[in-house]
């Protein structure tokens, strides 16, 4: 069971919103005492997902939560956009697959960096990606 200890939402509409989001995520990670390597993984993952949201989803909202499960405490980030959605999630999760001109590492790479990763997408409605990094994960 995941319990939410605190939450905060940021709207991402433009590229200029990315650096403040990274900073906010860092603040939250530092506050719960997350180590530097996990912080770096979390912020990098956030950076990947927020870029996807801007590029493919025309922006959206990011929910930043401090969550706990048993003895573990961590940060959960949920990226929601109202973009075109992803028709084939399995394909999008493959290394090297991209409909843009990127390296296609964003989604699969992010999953590798995180402890928990989930993605839901409905064509025509949008995409929700949720990630969790435990403080000691």
């Amino acid at each position: 069971m995941l319990t939410t200890l605190s939450k905060d939402t940021m709207a991402i509409m433009r590229e200029q919103d990315v650096v403040p989001l990274r900073n906010r995520v860092k603040e939250v990670a530092v506050k719960i005492g997350m180590g530097l390597v996990n912080q770096t993984k979390l912020i990098t993952a956030a950076s990947e997902l927020v870029r996807n949201m801007l590029r493919y989803g025309n922006g959206g909202d990011v929910l930043i939560e401090v969550v706990s499960k048993g003895r573990e405490v961590g940060v959960r980030l949920t990226f929601s956009d109202r973009g075109p959605g992803i028709p084939d999630i399995n394909l999008a999760m493959q290394d090297g697959y991209s409909t843009g001109r990127s390296l296609g590492l964003g989604l699969p790479g992010t999953k590798r960096l995180m402890n928990e990763f989930s993605i839901q997408s409905t064509v025509g409605q949008g995409t929700v990606v949720s990630i969790v990094k435990w403080k000691n994960g």
Binding site: Q39, K41, G109
Partner: peptide
């Protein structure tokens, strides 16, 4: 490059 950045980059797949 900072060590944490190196770790993250390789895990990311770059």
């Amino acid at each position: 490059m900072q060590p944490a950045v190196a770790i993250t980059l390789i895990e990311l797949g770059l």
